[in-house]
Design a protein around this nucleic acid. Structure first.
Lengths: 190, 190
DNA sequence: CCAACTGTACCGTCTGGACGGTAATGTCAA
DNA sequence: TTGACATTACCGTCCAGACGGTACAGTTGG
């Protein structure tokens, strides 16, 4: 039979690709974007350089894929969170906060591939720019209050950037308190 | 006699150094941190490579200086803004917002040297980490409301990160609206 | 005089990526 | 059933060029 029950429909190809992407992200976290050489990625991912280039035929392709997978993953998770708020008011805004809190709780690593892409060429971030603009617009629509949406969006953006740049300004617990306070603003709005 | 070595604040030395630092920042903005080679910086700053290495004997020193000058400049400007709020309540918090708005209005370029330092080695950002933690603590002390201080700090951090990463999520005008709304929260607190 | 450069030549290392293999797993016609 | 070929998923080596940095002799404004 050709149809399996395996929930993760991950082909070997996809498995290796995500292993490589994750390895790249770890290298950037540990050594900075300049430490992201193809050799380093290959070594960390446990493939040869040739194998790496088989999956990502150039460094640009690797970075493009990293950015794309970040945007796609985020969007999928946001949709998934939104689905749990089916009938309530402002489902997207709640989902937006849920997702942040979820990332906090399970100590999600920052999307360091973004930093590597930015270091290589700022235009790699175009999909992120587009996506972020859209997110803010959707939050505004969801809340019917552009100012509140902006406040929520940028506060979370601040918390995320602190994580991305590893600034460690506050412990995770404090970040969660801030996010919960934002939720209070949504609820108060009604 | 005249053993004072550090008195002249605007020596030719300092002028060239800041021209170099600014050139570096521009390169990072335009081409990403990977484009920041010593040759490129020298060319952009209008000095020879030898001249560049005369001022910054290694790339590390250049990046260290970029980070340091960012922290020092910010701190000086924040103090200057705070001085204008001498007798009012929560002078630091107002100054914090003033400074952000000021940067918005005069289209201040993002501190891209920070990105280059991060790309080279994340530990270069240690002075920034320390400084940011201190700023948040001072905001908390100034407001006597840790939650509000965190909200203000991270919202501004979000706006700044959007600028730093050149995400262009909102036009400057909207950023100003958000900041002014935060000021409303300070005033309401009394 | 000397700080503040310029200019040129050079060196060792690293890096992206091209390239030529290879082994395992299909696919399919006879 | 089998032999022939195709595709997938890699491996390991080599190389041209870029880069950080050194060295050093010369120049110029103050």
């Amino acid at each position: 039979m050709s149809s399996e029950v395996t929930i993760p429909p991950v082909s070997k190809r996809q498995a290796t690709r995500s292993r490589i992407l994750e390895a790249a992200s770890e290298i950037v976290q540990e050594s900075g974007a300049n430490g992201l050489s193809l050799d380093a990625v290959a070594a960390k991912a446990g493939v040869s350089k040739g194998g790496l280039l088989y999956h990502f035929p150039s460094k640009s392709k690797l970075l493009t894929a990293a950015v794309e997978s970040f945007v796609l993953d985020y969007e999928a998770q946001l949709m998934s969170c939104e689905a749990t708020h089916g009938e309530s008011e402002h489902p997207l805004s709640h989902a937006f906060l849920d997702l942040f809190l979820q990332d906090c709780r399970c100590n999600r690593k920052p999307p360091s591939g973004i930093l590597a892409a930015l270091a290589e060429d700022p235009s790699f971030l175009d999909p992120v720019r587009q996506h972020e603009r859209l997110i803010l617009q959707r939050l505004k629509d969801d809340l019917g209050d552009a100012d509140l949406a902006s406040l929520i969006y940028f506060t979370i953006a601040g918390l995320k950037s602190s994580h991305l740049l590893d600034l460690n300004v506050v412990p995770d617990e404090d970040a969660r308190r801030v996010a919960e306070r934002l939720r209070g603003l949504i609820v108060a709005k009604g």
